[in-house]
Design a binder for these strands. Structure first.
Lengths: 185, 185
DNA sequence: CTTGTCTATGCAACGAGTTGCATAGAAGGA
DNA sequence: TCCTTCTATGCAACTCGTTGCATAGACAAG
């Protein structure tokens, strides 16, 4: 499992509480690694008892106190070890593709609305990515300071952008195909 | 869960045994829905006891007997109902992206080999897809017989092809970025 | 002053997925 | 003959992930 490692990366990029991590997993990191707050709290507990992360109670005003986590030495070592292990090719779960093939045994036209809904979700995400890219990665790097973290976050973001564009084009293809089958001749 | 529904679609396309399904899930269908044989056997049991599928003992020579499953009426109804339910946007688990961001806290250059390995896996898959497309979808459809199943399988395959091409281009981008960071100045 | 929302953390139960192991017939090669 | 490979099915144990629910402080709106 790699939720631990996703959390380590996120905490190395910036320490934070379980709640804050859960929100990051709803946004940036969550676009390529989904997790709910229950998963996150449970794993944080285990990571803390394994000595991978340290907790610090932070008193806040205007809101409840929080436990802020940061990565300990052994956590960094665990991440480093994981980075050097090969991983298996991703195991995909593309539910929509199953539905599309299943539509052959039902009414293909009935799927159009569902596919359009997915298309809208992706169409909403793309400008969000592009805005993030403009915000964080447009101005050229200060000379002499190649920031590895910045460069790597950018290349992952470029992957997200390419994925959304590819997906939008494919969903248009799917919709056109379903329409063709719904009204043949 | 949707493994049941993926199995229903696969059995509607062609009846088969648990073992045959497991092999399909290693190939065509498995490219967008992964499953092991243990999962498949367990779910087949449940589907049979729910009356979604019918089993038929098939005696074979030269090899062990098998239980061939086919979709029953209530299975078709269950699939139809599922097709009309909205699904949530896919929850992604892109381990490699986590690693790439994690490389900022380790040696970026050390990841190059791993990314190249993934690139090779995708580069191997693409010609496999293209060969399948040539084999099954090149000759134009016989006029007057728009085969919905064929069209829908083709559009899903086109999605796979687009995904592999996008991924290859992105992995090249990732490798170039890692090389740039590994040898700066 | 109650209701709703946001921050913040957590438990319990269940369902899904993974891993390791086991069995067994038939074929082919060492 | 033994070993391996392929077909074919399955159990048991465990981990992971999801869902529903619960608590609680602080604030804002009605």
């Amino acid at each position: 499992m790699a939720l631990e490692h996703a959390i380590l990366v996120s905490l190395l990029e910036k320490p934070g509480s379980g709640y804050e991590l859960a929100r990051r997993f709803d946004r940036s990191i969550g676009y390529f690694w989904a997790a709910t707050h229950q998963q996150i709290y449970r794993v944080l507990k285990r990571m803390e008892s394994d000595g991978w992360i340290d907790a610090r109670e932070v008193a806040q005003q205007d809101r409840p106190d929080k436990r802020e986590y940061s990565v300990a030495g052994s956590g960094r070592a665990a991440l480093s070890q994981w980075l050097h292990e090969p991983i298996e090719p991703e195991s995909v779960r593309h539910e929509l593709a199953v539905k599309i093939r299943g539509a052959a045994f039902d009414d293909p036209a009935a799927l159009i609305r569902e596919v359009e809904r997915h298309r809208r979700a992706h169409a909403d995400r793309l400008p969000h990515y592009l805005a993030g890219e403009r915000r964080d990665f447009v101005e050229p790097e200060a000379p002499g300071t190649p920031d590895a973290g910045r460069e790597l976050q950018h290349v992952v973001l470029r992957g997200g952008i390419a994925y959304e564009r590819m997906t939008l084009a494919w969903l248009d293809d799917v919709i056109a195909t379903l329409e063709r089958l719904g009204a043949p001749r």
